[in-house]
């Protein structure tokens, strides 16, 4: 079990925010920290890792206190037995893939693990290559297994797939799921990608302005009680009044959609807001293109 209670003043692009989080995480599930940029997601991850100190708070992982501002406990990052995968700049450029993994393993004797792990992500053939010879996706896969070689108590991923294109992203999401099923390590995954959240996590912590505004299963949080037959997430581009109705222009993926709404329905919705578009009463028509 993980207890995470931290407070810290942060400077974001939109001015100072007070990060204030109090959660308990159970079991070896993947928890997603979801939210807009600058909400404090990465900061929370870095505080769990010991790369950033909270102003005050308490962090406990499996009955082991890592941080306790009241009693002056602050375990250094090296002693926390975590694994952390960053957005980029993960691998050491002067070491080969195999040397990178060996460095993570340290003096432990189980060197055969390196090849086993490389085979798990189909990279055994590249073990003697330096990172700059690898594609970004391959590098991130090496970073994933390098992190897991340590047998961590908690696995922290800071938007590790955000620089990848969609097909590769899907492949690596599968890899992360497979690795998680195999090792069953409690995992905190930071992302601002909604589909990633749905695919990977059993629990979501929705972070806004440094506070957890919602938490629960992905469908609970993003469904808002709707039992829609189909749903898309988009963002509002335009609100135009047409008589007593409004024409709302919404961008869903790369497509623009116009939806009619009443004044009541768009109350509180502004341009730029992220919304769910769903149809309930009618079946959508499917046309071949």
């Amino acid at each position: 079990m993980i207890t995470l209670r931290v407070k810290k003043k942060l400077l974001s692009a939109d001015g100072p925010i007070g990060l204030d989080v109090d959660v308990q995480l159970h079991g070896p599930e993947i928890v997603t920290l979801f939210g807009p940029s600058g909400a404090g997601k990465t900061s929370i991850l870095r505080m769990v890792a010991g790369l950033m100190d909270p102003d005050e708070g308490y962090i406990e992982v499996n009955n082991d206190v890592w941080f306790d501002s009241k009693n002056g406990i602050n375990k250094p990052v090296q002693d926390r037995q975590i694994s952390f995968v960053f957005q980029d700049q993960n691998l050491f450029p002067h070491m080969t893939v195999e040397e990178n993994l060996r460095y993570a393993l340290g003096d432990k004797k189980d060197g055969h693990l390196i090849i086993d792990f490389l085979k798990m992500v189909d990279l055994a053939a590249l073990k003697s290559q330096r990172p700059h010879m690898l594609s970004f996706g391959q590098r991130q896969r090496v970073a994933l297994i390098r992190a897991l070689l340590r047998k961590p108590k908690i696995f922290l991923l800071d938007e590790p797939l955000s620089s990848l294109d969609v097909p590769l992203r899907l492949k690596l999401q599968d890899d992360i799921l497979a690795l998680h099923r195999k090792f069953e390590v409690p995992t905190i995954f930071v992302t601002h990608d909604l589909s990633e959240t749905f695919k990977l996590s059993q629990q979501i912590l929705f972070l806004e302005q440094g506070k957890i505004s919602k938490s629960g299963k992905p469908s609970d949080i993003f469904g808002d009680g709707l039992s829609g037959k189909f749903k898309f997430v988009g963002s509002i581009l335009e609100l135009v009044r047409e008589g007593f109705l409004f024409i709302v222009t919404i961008q869903i993926g790369q497509n623009l959609t116009k939806v009619v709404a009443t004044e009541d329905e768009i109350k509180g919705i502004n341009i730029g807001d992220r919304v769910i578009v769903s149809a309930k009463a009618f079946n959508p028509i499917i046309l071949k293109i």
């Binding site: 890792a49 790369l51 990052v77 090296q78 002693d79 037995q81 975590i82 694994s83 952390f84 960053f86 700049q89 993960n90 691998l91 050491f92 460095y103 993570a104 340290g106 390098r146 992190a147 340590r150």
Partner: peptide, 8 residues
């Protein structure tokens, strides 16, 4: 940091 989080 990548090295520190590996316990080094």
């Amino acid at each position: 940091e990548a090295s520190y989080v590996l316990g080094k």
